[in-house]
């Protein structure tokens, strides 16, 4: 058993949703959530939950995939700009590599991250997929 059950349980609020910080002093939003603002250092920040809709800003196709992720190779790693105004790195799924383009709308989905053998934990977390049927740069409904 490689994965710690307490660790994964403890991380549930970060694994199953996108929690970010919003600074009440300067208005900056950033991910991951932190206790102080990474722009103005104010302690007056609050944690918010993103709706999970955003735009693909940049991406790469990763072939040298770390151990325990190799079933997913090659992986698409993207920079997603969430509609709440912050950027994060995320894994992009459910898309042919040739169909990916910068500026496409993406949405958060819950997916399997890794499996710990036949008797250990299955860890889930947030990845992103293209919004089905959404126009370039503008999107609404879920597919």
């Amino acid at each position: 058993m490689k994965d710690s059950a307490p660790r994964i349980w403890r991380m549930r609020n970060n694994l199953y949703r996108i929690r970010y910080s919003k600074c009440k002093a300067c208005g900056a939003s950033f991910y991951p959530a932190r206790a102080s603002c990474i722009r103005c250092s104010s302690r007056d920040v609050e944690v918010r939950v993103s709706l999970g809709l955003g735009t693909l800003v940049e991406y790469t196709v990763l072939y040298q995939v770390p151990a325990r992720m190799q079933d997913n190779a090659p992986m698409v790693i993207g920079v997603v700009r969430l509609d709440e105004g912050f950027e994060l790195y995320g894994v992009i799924v459910d898309a042919d590599i040739k169909d990916l383009r910068k500026g496409m709308r993406v949405e958060a989905v819950l997916r399997r991250l890794r499996v710990d053998g036949s008797s250990g934990l299955i860890t889930y977390g947030i990845k992103f997929r293209p919004v089905i049927g959404a126009a370039h740069g503008e999107g609404s409904g879920r597919g």
């Binding site: 940049e58 990763l62 040298q64 770390p66 790693i77 790195y89 995320g90 991250l113």
Partner: peptide
């Protein structure tokens, strides 16, 4: 995988977002 631990393991490491992929972006 070990090299991927140089970042924040709860964020990039756990998802397989490796240092090479960050450098590529």
């Amino acid at each position: 995988k070990v090299y991927s631990m140089i970042g924040d393991s709860d964020y990039t490491g756990l998802y397989g977002i490796s240092p090479a992929s960050e450098a590529a972006i």
